[in-house]
């Protein structure tokens, strides 16, 4: 086991998968010599040469080339430099990658992984802070994975690369250097489509994913001293969702707080709320509550405004407290 950050875990997963299977290759903007803007692909061009491709600034082409190569048996890992820039590739991802298995009656499938850094808190402002998962989380044929720790990042990215169908892999850019943890140096994968119970609790259930898991754990730790115990579920895969785990977690306490750092309306958490409404009515002891970013067009640049926009430990803590006292 080695201590490493979220970014190091991703780099290691890519390296191991490229060593393991020569069909795996990387394509994206500045991923080669430069090693990616966040250095996620650092050292891979030196080790694997032309299996790490620098592409033109055309996300549509990155996704399209990835889809074509995947249909012919390769295992491409396409990097979108920022999740915000995925929009030009939406047609390729939604209308092509997600539907090819269905359209070709199983003759073709697309084992493509699309990696993209998302989320705010690093003064990225309008075009470098967005969360894109909600835009894709109603597209059957896609899988959306968002890891919340270095350990999960490595295991889930390896699973995504080996998956036979397209996986969107979102990495919180603020987590890259903020989150550190033990990561085994040997080969392991984690199941896609399975949520993870982070801690058991009695008073309030928090369901969340990505970086917010970290803040929820911090908030829960402080609340424990005041006698409030928190049950925390990390979705890990936001599409398709782990219904059973969501229902079990909601039933556990009957008081549910849903946390996302995306805008509130129509977020991934709206779907979780709907699942709970369908399955858990007679176990609910309080209204299901969503804590999310405000419904304003973009992440502000100014520090105080950005802080106001972000979902923080303090905001989660007071929301849990409110629910516990209800």
């Amino acid at each position: 086991m080695a201590m490493m950050n979220y970014l190091g875990a991703i780099n290691l997963a890519l390296k191991e998968e490229m060593e393991r299977d020569e069909k795996v290759f990387i394509l994206g903007e500045d991923v080669g010599k430069r090693g990616g803007v966040f250095l996620a692909t650092e050292g891979l061009y030196e080790q694997f040469g032309d299996r790490v491709l620098d592409t033109p600034l055309s996300e549509s082409a990155i996704a399209g080339v990835g889809i074509g190569a995947a249909m012919y048996g390769m295992r491409p890992v396409a990097e979108m430099q920022f999740a915000d820039f995925m929009l030009p590739a939406v047609n390729q991802i939604v209308s092509e990658a997600a539907k090819i298995r269905y359209r070709s009656n199983n003759d073709f499938h697309v084992p493509l992984t699309v990696r993209a850094p998302y989320g705010g808190g690093v003064h990225g402002a309008l075009y470098h802070s967005q969360s894109m998962e909600a835009m894709f989380n109603s597209i059957p044929g896609l899988k959306i994975v968002i890891p919340s720790s270095p350990y999960d990042a490595k295991g889930l990215l390896k699973a995504a690369i080996r998956d036979e169908d397209p996986v969107l892999f979102f990495e919180h850019k603020r987590a890259y250097r903020l989150l550190k943890g033990e990561v085994p140096e040997e080969d392991y994968t984690l199941p896609i489509g399975k949520a993870a119970l982070k801690q058991e609790g009695e008073d309030v259930t928090v369901i969340t994913y990505g970086l917010s898991v970290h803040f929820a754990e911090q908030a829960a730790k402080e609340l424990e001293e005041t006698g409030i115990s928190t049950h925390i579920l990390d979705l890990r895969t936001v599409y398709p969702m782990d219904r059973d785990a969501i229902v079990d977690a909601a039933k556990k306490t009957g008081k549910v707080l849903l946390v996302t750092d995306d805008n509130k309306e129509g977020s991934v958490m709206s779907e979780v709320a709907a699942i709970i409404a369908e399955e858990c009515l007679f176990d609910l002891d309080a209204p299901v509550e969503r804590l999310a970013a405000p419904d304003v067009p973009a992440m502000p640049y100014a520090s105080p405004l950005e802080k106001q926009f972000l979902v923080t430990k303090d905001k989660i803590q007071s929301a849990i407290q409110e629910l516990a006292e209800f």
């Binding site: 009695e202 008073d203 009957g254 176990d283 609910l284 002891d285 006292e325 209800f326």
Partner: peptide, 30 residues
């Protein structure tokens, strides 16, 4: 709440007998 009513029905409890610890004296599931 639905959870409180469901539990009360299941165990045949008269909710008037209980003292609530929730906000505004609400009887909680706990």
């Amino acid at each position: 709440s639905p959870a409180v009513l469901a539990l009360a029905g299941e165990h045949g409890i008269d909710l008037q007998q209980l003292t609530g610890t929730g906000r505004g004296g609400r009887i909680t599931r706990k």
